[in-house]
Structure formats: structure tokens, C-alpha cells
């Protein structure tokens, strides 16, 4: 996409700065002010509220995974799927600017998936999730994971109607990310600190990172894990079960953490 104006084309093109000579202020009728008073995110927020209500009514637990490119979101999903898919119906909505590579990985792990390509877009919105979940048609007492576009900034702003946002951050990103990108950490219920198998090789103070996260969001829960070796993934599954139980109609949730 054009990095100057964000449009779809890759070609170089003009970005016009209109001249203002054509404003004939002495000839125009009196200026009136119309008060409108509307939240800019109102449209998305309305759709998100409808989603949240409809997912809860149908017993579908939706989790929105957000993290920078390469943080390890898909790898985490793959390891959750392998543990849980025989106990709980799962589906995934994969958001990326381009390709269906992540969808192929999720399918390879044995899970229903739909890829959403956003093109120039940097986030998923509530309308995309509504359409995606409709296409997946998940059964009652199921989980739908949304892997948002790799980006710590924009996805924080768009409510999808999910049950919870989960921020996935890896130990190679630097422990100060929570205070440098505070919005997403503030909006998330859980921070997954992943790639802990790399801790011997990178200077990363995990306790300090958690302290930074709690500085912007005192309530945030934290789970440390490695998708590569599997440690910590069961704990995430347990967390997901406890959360999902809030919208699932039955106690079937009990199976999710067992191997």
C-alpha cells in the first residue's frame, strides 16, 4: 500500500494540497453550526455490542489474540488446539494483511479456520468478526479464537464483541513494551509472555515486564509459557476454560484443561 496516504496502490502518485483560493467568503451565506455529537467508534461499537450479545446467547466464547508480528500467536494457537480439540469444539478466525499461511497452519493442527485478509487494513473490526463467525457456524459451548493482524497499536481500539482480549508478547520484544504501547495492555485481560525457552539467550527481565504491564493495567493476569516446549500452555487452557464458563450453558467446560 502507499505509505504516504494509506491507499491500496503501490504506484507513486500525487498527494494534492488543495489551494484555498476558491473560498469566496464574502459571497457565501452565513455559516451555521450543526451539533452532531457522535462517538467516532460508534458504528463499530454498536456492532460489537450486538456480537457480544449474540455470542453469549449462543454459548460461544470468543477470544481476541493481539500481538506484534511474529510474537507467537499462531504457534500458541497450534499448541492449544492440539491439547483441547478432542474436548471442546474450536474454530479460528485468522486476520492477516495477506496470504492464508496462518490458516493453513491452523488447519494442519486440526481445527476449523477462516482466513480474513485485510489488505491495507491494520486491524479486524466487529463487522468482519460477525461475518466470520456466521460462516464458521460454531456449536454451543465452543471457543472461537480470533488472531488479530500482527500489530500492537490499532487492534486495541476496535472492540470485536469478544469475551476477552489476550495480548501475546514474546521475551525477544523487550520488557518495556507494556509502557510503550499501553492501550493494548490496558484493554487486555490476560498477557501471555511467550518464548520463555529463549530467556537464557536474551537479556529480558520478565518480572520487570510484568511490573510494567501492571503499571498500565493493575488487573491484568499474566501467564508465562513456551509454545515450543509446551510449558505453561495448560495454564492458558485452564484460564480459557474459566473464562468460557461465563457464556457456556453447561459444565462441559470441565474437560478443557485435561491433556
Amino acid at each position: 500500500m502507499c505509505t504516504t496516504c494509506g491507499c491500496e496502490t503501490d504506484d507513486v502518485h500525487d498527494h494534492h494540497h488543495r489551494d484555498h483560493d476558491d473560498h469566496h467568503h464574502d459571497q457565501v451565506p452565513a455559516v451555521r453550526t450543526l451539533r452532531i455529537e457522535r462517538d467516532l467508534l460508534a458504528k463499530n461499537e454498536r456492532l460489537a455490542a450486538v456480537n457480544r450479545h449474540s455470542f453469549a446467547a449462543r454459548g460461544i466464547a470468543v477470544f481476541n489474540l493481539i500481538g506484534s508480528p511474529g510474537a507467537g500467536k499462531t504457534a500458541l494457537l497450534e499448541s492449544i488446539i492440539r491439547r483441547v480439540r478432542t474436548h471442546v469444539p474450536l474454530a479460528v478466525l485468522e486476520g492477516d494483511q495477506a496470504t492464508d499461511r496462518d490458516a493453513q497452519r491452523i488447519e494442519g493442527a486440526g481445527c476449523r479456520v477462516r482466513q480474513i485478509n485485510t489488505g491495507a487494513g491494520c486491524h479486524l473490526d466487529a463487522a468482519m468478526i460477525e461475518a466470520g463467525v456466521r460462516a464458521l457456524a460454531p456449536p454451543r459451548s465452543s471457543i472461537v479464537f480470533v488472531e488479530n493482524v500482527g500489530n500492537l497499536v490499532c487492534p486495541a481500539l476496535f472492540d470485536l464483541g469478544e469475551l476477552a482480549k489476550i495480548v501475546v508478547m514474546s521475551v525477544t520484544e523487550g520488557e518495556d513494551k507494556p509502557i510503550k504501547y499501553p492501550h493494548v495492555f490496558r484493554a487486555s485481560r490476560l498477557m501471555v509472555l511467550t518464548k520463555t525457552d529463549l530467556l537464557p539467550h536474551v537479556p529480558f527481565d520478565a518480572d520487570r515486564c510484568v511490573a510494567f504491564a501492571r503499571e498500565v493495567n493493575p488487573e491484568i493476569e499474566v501467564i508465562r509459557l513456551t509454545a515450543l516446549r509446551g510449558e505453561g500452555v495448560d495454564e492458558v487452557c485452564g484460564w480459557l476454560r474459566a473464562e468460557a464458563a461465563r457464556v457456556w450453558p453447561s459444565r462441559r467446560a470441565a474437560g478443557i484443561a485435561s491433556p
Binding site: 455559516v31 457522535r38 462517538d39
Partner: peptide
């Protein structure tokens, strides 16, 4: 560009909170 609003200026009033609101428009 190419819409009925072409030529209009965007006036942003910065505040301290988390608001993101369309307040009003000046029209003739």
C-alpha cells in the same frame, strides 16, 4: 476527496481524556 465534504477543514480540539467524538460541523 471526491465527496460532498471536499474542501472542508478538520478542526481537532485536543482534550485530556479518551474521547473520540464528532462534535459539530459548520455549514452554509
Amino acid at each position: 476527496h471526491g465527496t460532498a465534504l471536499e474542501g472542508a477543514t478538520l478542526d481537532i480540539v485536543e482534550t485530556r481524556g479518551a474521547e473520540l467524538r464528532l462534535k459539530e460541523v459548520e455549514v452554509t
